[in-house]
Simulated scan of single mutants.
Amino acid sequence: MTDLLKIPVTIVTGFLGAGKTTLISHLIRNAGGKRLAVIVNEFGTLGVDGDILKGCAIPDCPAENVIELANGCICCTVADDFIPTVETLLALDPRPDHILIETSGLALPKPLLKAFDWPAIRSRITVDGVIALADAEAVAAGRFAPDLAAVDAQRAADPSVDHETPLSEVFEDQLACADMVLLTKVDLAGPDGVAAARAVIAAESARPLPVVELVDGVVDPRVILGLGAAAENDIAARPSHHDGEDDHEHDDFNSIVVELDDVSTPADLTTRIERLATEYAILRVKGYAAVAGKPMRLLVQAVGARVRTQYDRPWRGDERRVTQLVVIAERGHIDTPAITAALAG
């Protein structure tokens, strides 16, 4: 690549737990000789996704090419965080062939697209494509798209409910901004669930979008890299619920970091998280746990009451052996003492 060519950037968006980190991990390992760089935008102060990606770094995407931004949505901190980070990646020697940006699951992608119009970077990078990941099982269940019958029933039961939930708006904005949808976890949804999810996506998309089904983030990189969309030049064709607003807020959501001592077993922690999701309407739990008597660190990823755990690596001698979990919920559902007590058992 010469200095006369813009470096392509792929924005990977999608709801909490849709599989963004899993997808990018796969792309890193199967880059086909492309030198990749990654920007990870976390929600909350504990960097889980960035640590996962740095752990799978290879020569074509070394750890120094993975940069984590945990100070809020990058589209809200363009001058302070986003522009300097992009400039850092562009200054690498050798320069990356392609940059991947993993947005927070709560981020609206359109304001990020607008950031690419900044003079400092517009002539040097281009948005190759916006990829929206959608959890097939969750979409089929109607969690992230409007369900008029359900909304009407909710209105009847609770007069204070008179609009769509913030979650559905985030989902619709991600679809509206996308060049392609990756339908994830199709093995969990089954054929009927996949068909239902496809129908929801088709109904809620502002324009026809290609939909690709995948499991465990496995997809040929040639399918999603090299789209040449130049999406920063096509912003008007990507409508948003927030068009016309000067900025956007993330006050609909909140997160806390819960720190605990060793947990007894992975199964016991899983049970606590499942109960937490049911009793406190928790959207997401992610982090690391120290398991009593085990030298390995336990990676924890939960979407609602669906919990996955696995040992990812031994605890290092220079780090604290402690359980740290990020808990994300809609505002009004964060009761820190109660959540901490529930996780502590």
Rank of each mutant, 00 (worst) to 15 (best):
G50R: 01
A277I: 02
T45P: 03
Q324W: 05
R238E: 11
I121V: 09
T184F: 00
M296N: 14
D247H: 15
D81Q: 09
C76G: 03
L89T: 04
G129L: 09
R297E: 04
V223R: 13
G304W: 00
K20C: 08
A115V: 02
K6G: 11
L108S: 10
T336G: 08
T165R: 13
G129D: 10
T85L: 05
D49C: 08
I282G: 10
K294V: 15
I121Q: 04
L5F: 12
A120C: 09
G19M: 07
D49P: 12
G228P: 02
G142A: 02
V218A: 15
R95F: 04
L16Y: 07
A267L: 11
V130Q: 10
P159D: 09
V218R: 15
P295L: 03
V215R: 11
G217K: 06
R306H: 14
H26I: 03
P191L: 01
V257G: 00
G32R: 06
H250V: 14
I201R: 00
K114E: 15
V130I: 15
R238P: 03
C75E: 02
A229H: 06
E172Q: 15
D135W: 03
A57Q: 06
A18L: 08
V139C: 10
I52S: 03
V200R: 12
I24F: 00
V12T: 15
G17T: 06
I224L: 10
F116N: 05
E330I: 05
V303G: 04
